[in-house]
Design a binder for these strands. Structure first.
Length: 136
DNA sequence: GCCAACGTTGGC
DNA sequence: GCCAACGTTGGC
């Protein structure tokens, strides 16, 4: 499956993930986002989106470890997954590109702007790859 | 820095 | 269980 996660670069950006080699995606405190975390499988590919600054998809991460208890809280409601960087996009795909592409109007990124972890359909994934200049 | 959108909380 | 109030996120 395919996913998209957002992060503010000033808090935790793509460069930081590359530097760290791996990170646990903690701090998710939203039930919808949490449910998506729980549905992630090892090896799933995850678009890495920069919110606020940049406002673009900059790279692809992969799920390295499936969900487990969020170590930053004792509340059993919350979980994290481990992500590792997979590849940086040749060309970042900006929010405005996505918003102007007729084929991507149904994307959660457009419709549910505030959701921090969201699923991406295979169709959408292919379009993003095309916009990013990736030929896979 | 403002404000719209949305989720959550809490009073009834 | 409804809904108003409030807080947070994120685009602009």
């Amino acid at each position: 499956m395919y996913w998209l996660v957002k992060s503010e670069p000033s808090v935790y950006g793509w460069e930081q993930l590359v530097k760290d080699k791996k990170t646990s995606w903690d701090g998710v405190r939203n039930y919808a986002a949490r449910n998506h975390l729980k549905a992630m499988k090892k090896g799933d590919e995850v678009l890495f989106y920069h919110s606020n600054e940049g406002m673009e998809i900059v790279g692809i991460a992969k799920v390295d470890k499936e969900f487990y208890q969020d170590p930053t809280t004792d509340d059993a409601n919350w979980v994290v997954v481990d992500l590792k960087p997979h590849k940086k996009l040749k060309k970042p795909v900006t929010l405005s590109q996505i918003k102007t592409d007729k084929r991507l109007q149904e994307m959660a990124l457009v419709r549910l702007g505030r959701l921090s972890v969201q699923p991406v359909t295979e169709k959408e994934w292919k379009i993003i790859m095309e916009l990013a200049g990736e030929n896979s």
